[in-house]
């Protein structure tokens, strides 16, 4: 017993002098890797998972469309809606929206615009295909269905 008693008398303190450094490191990490949310998303975003992902390298060439049930059903109803930037739009407005997005880009890069569809997993294909048809009319044919990485055994192949 005496062996243990001796040990308990030693005072143990965690050195805290390096804590600011650690915190700053974390801070810089978050500052660099994250982006400020430009719009508040008003539709449900349960993004599905998939394995065969491809990345978009240039963020400036990406335009986002959010599709899903409104998060405030009391205000906007329960039917899935399309959100572009800050507003809900109808499929017929998409051509105009694409042209707006294209006009923001330099002329030589307009054809490289990629539309990223962030679609809730419970949204129906009907609405999405309406969006696709409008995108074809607007000649924005590069499309990305936004998904998260699924971890499974086939991933490494």
């Amino acid at each position: 017993m005496s062996k243990f008693k001796k040990k308990t008398q030693v005072k143990q303190e965690i050195p805290t002098s390096s804590m600011p450094d650690v915190v700053f490191m974390l801070l810089f990490f978050f500052m660099v890797t994250t982006e400020l949310r430009e719009t508040s998303i008003e539709v449900k975003q349960g993004i599905p998972r998939a394995t065969q992902l491809r990345k978009l390298m240039r963020k400036s060439l990406v335009a986002n469309l959010y599709i899903g049930e409104p998060t405030k059903p009391a205000l906007y109803g329960k039917e899935p809606k399309i959100q572009a930037d800050d507003v809900f739009i109808e499929p017929k407005d998409i051509v105009r929206w694409v042209n707006e997005k294209k006009s923001e880009l330099p002329e030589n890069e307009r054809e490289q615009l990629t539309v990223s569809l962030k679609v809730d997993r419970d949204a129906k294909r009907g609405l999405i295909s309406d969006v696709e048809i409008e995108l074809r009319k607007a000649n924005a044919r590069k499309l990305l269905y936004s998904t998260l990485q699924q971890k499974d055994d086939e991933e490494g192949r």
Partner: peptide, 15 residues
């Protein structure tokens, strides 16, 4: 205030 950017997904070309 921040979100992790997610610019990955299934890429297709529309007709």
């Amino acid at each position: 205030t921040t979100t992790m950017p997610n610019n990955s997904g299934l890429s297709i070309a529309l007709p």
